[in-house]
């Protein structure tokens, strides 16, 4: 069964130099089980193919039902140097929520 990430989670993103961080928070415990299992660093890297040019690191915050992703080399040089329209990665959390996840029924 395919589910939309945006149906089970919300999030926020921002900049850390040339890296972007994306925090994804599940709405409930079942949602956290799903993202904890399926929303891997590899999948996020693949999702942002061509946008994230460095590695993706994943950190877990189970108390908050949340995962934090650091996407290195993503913001076109970062903050004030970047020519990107969204130079601070503010819309990247929404971009990650576009993902669909295949889960067992």
């Amino acid at each position: 069964m395919k589910i939309k990430l945006r149906d089970i989670a919300h999030g926020r993103s921002g900049d850390k130099g040339d890296a972007a961080n994306i925090g994804i928070i599940a709405y409930d415990d079942r949602g956290y089980e799903i993202i904890e299992k399926h929303l891997t660093a590899e999948k996020v890297k693949k999702h942002f193919d061509g946008i994230c040019r460095g590695k993706v690191e994943r950190y877990e915050l189970p108390n908050l039902r949340a995962l934090n992703f650091l996407l290195h080399n993503t913001l076109g040089g970062g903050g004030t140097v970047s020519l990107k329209f969204d130079a601070q990665g503010k819309t990247l959390a929404a971009a990650l929520l576009r993902m669909e996840i295949e889960i067992e029924n």
């Binding site: 900049d15 950190y59 934090n68």
Partner: peptide, 24 residues
């Protein structure tokens, strides 16, 4: 929760001049 995750790196090592906080 959204604000806690804003612009953080490794949540276990949130470094400030005062301490190293563990956001996890």
């Amino acid at each position: 929760a959204e604000q806690l995750l804003y612009e953080i790196g490794d949540p276990k090592n949130y470094i400030t001049p005062d301490c190293v906080a563990d956001f996890a």
